[in-house]
Design a binder for these strands. Structure first.
Lengths: 230, 230
DNA sequence: GTATCCCAACTTGGATACAAGACTTGACTT
DNA sequence: AAGTCAAGTCTTGTATCCAAGTTGGGATAC
């Protein structure tokens, strides 16, 4: 989650619990876009009054996860292609910048780090551990940011990635895409190790573009979960 | 503040009014970082109960503008160099991507657009209209995004720019920097019109780096408004 | 049988009362 | 005179009540 994690740690009250719970429910798609949720329902689920739930709703609202329609109802926000394109653009820009830095600054230890992460991905593929691949994918991109000495870049990538990950649950299973994604990672790692910034960026953008196809397919198959804004 | 108190609470969503008001107060630095604000105080200022103010606080909290310390107090959040660096990185990455696209796609009309905006900036400089320069600066960067056909890129640039603008009020007056900034804009426009992406990015990064000096100076002179996190 | 209209039940928004933690200030003790 | 402890007053957190608007269903008229 975006917030200041270190500070919220000392603030474990019921509001945070409700926010966390609904955040997970929504991002995991257990609560589908368009689902109506009621303050009183959530309140009784947690055994508290409406007040903490209201606070939680305000936070989720500014996080753009729910849509509060006064006097009518509150529902899980639908996907917006406009928001997705914006998110994709940010991620592409940040990832490109991180890749350039990584290609410039990568040393032997960095190269080894990338290789070992890719090896773990191969192992996950061999073990058919599809659910664990997500974390390995995150770790790979995080390693790139660290090699490029732009650790905060991963914060942004993570934020944007999470937004889209929710969407991708609707798509095909990962197992078919995994070999392709690992191959992309190998291309990226090779370019970084060769200090070839442009090749690294090109490989990174190719990697990202896989997502576009997936999203396009989902948009067609699950049109009901999308707003018709753009 | 007192003049609009009862009027703004007319028939609009009072929560939005409170958020807007506090947002302006904070970003304009009329409310300095560290200033304590109380739910009951704001409530009586607006002539409403604590409830709408609480809702507003939740929104401002997720916007990272205030820090709510339960049972203690709520205060205007201080500047964090970590957050500023992150913001700078995002902006640099997005701006670089927009500049590359703009250099690729710029046509005659786009070049004219850039030139005319720069001409307006020269005029503002001649008229010593320092306060109006800010809007012209925004417009220039927005034009770049539009030429590059990435309109949402400006949304992000604007967001990040606003965060830092609050800080820059503490710095030196713009009048000394204006000629330099306009010169930067001319370099950027020339590179875009020449379809030289790398030169455009280089000029854009040089433009952004001016901010670093300003911020460094402010950090020293106004250390009280900064957290000591980074 | 169908269409229309009204009312009841649902939703969130706002106000108020009370609870609980933290800081301040004062008096009391040493 | 100085240190310590406790009460008071500040803060935000929570519960509950009422207001206002929308929706859907049931009853009634045709």
């Amino acid at each position: 989650m975006t917030k200041t994690a270190s500070l919220t740690a000392s603030r474990r009250n019921s509001v945070d619990d409700i926010v966390d719970h609904l955040y997970r429910e929504i991002t995991s798609l257990r609560l589908l876009p368009g689902t109506r949720i009621s303050e009183t329902d959530i309140a009784s689920q947690f055994g508290v009054s409406r007040q903490p739930v209201r606070d939680a709703f305000r936070r989720l609202e500014t996080m753009d996860l729910i849509l509060v329609r006064p006097k009518k109802a509150t529902e899980v926000k639908k996907f917006s292609m406009r928001a997705i394109e914006k998110s994709r653009f940010v991620r592409a820009a940040v990832e490109a910048a991180a890749l350039r830095k990584a290609a410039e600054l990568c040393d032997k230890a960095g190269g080894f780090e990338l290789d070992s992460r890719i090896a773990m991905q191969h192992k996950a593929l061999a073990n058919e551990d599809y659910s664990g691949f997500g974390a390995l994918d995150y770790a790979f991109h995080k390693a790139i940011c660290e090699i490029g000495q732009v650790p905060f870049a991963f914060d942004i990538i993570k934020e944007e990635k999470e937004k889209v990950d929710r969407l991708c649950i609707l798509g095909l299973s990962k197992e078919r895409r995994m070999p392709q994604l690992i191959q992309d990672h190998e291309d990226i790692a090779a370019a970084i190790k060769a200090h070839d910034a442009e090749a690294a960026v090109a490989a990174g953008m190719r990697h990202l573009s896989r997502l576009d196809e997936t999203i396009a397919a989902i948009q067609i198959n699950s049109a009901a979960y999308f707003t018709d804004d753009a």
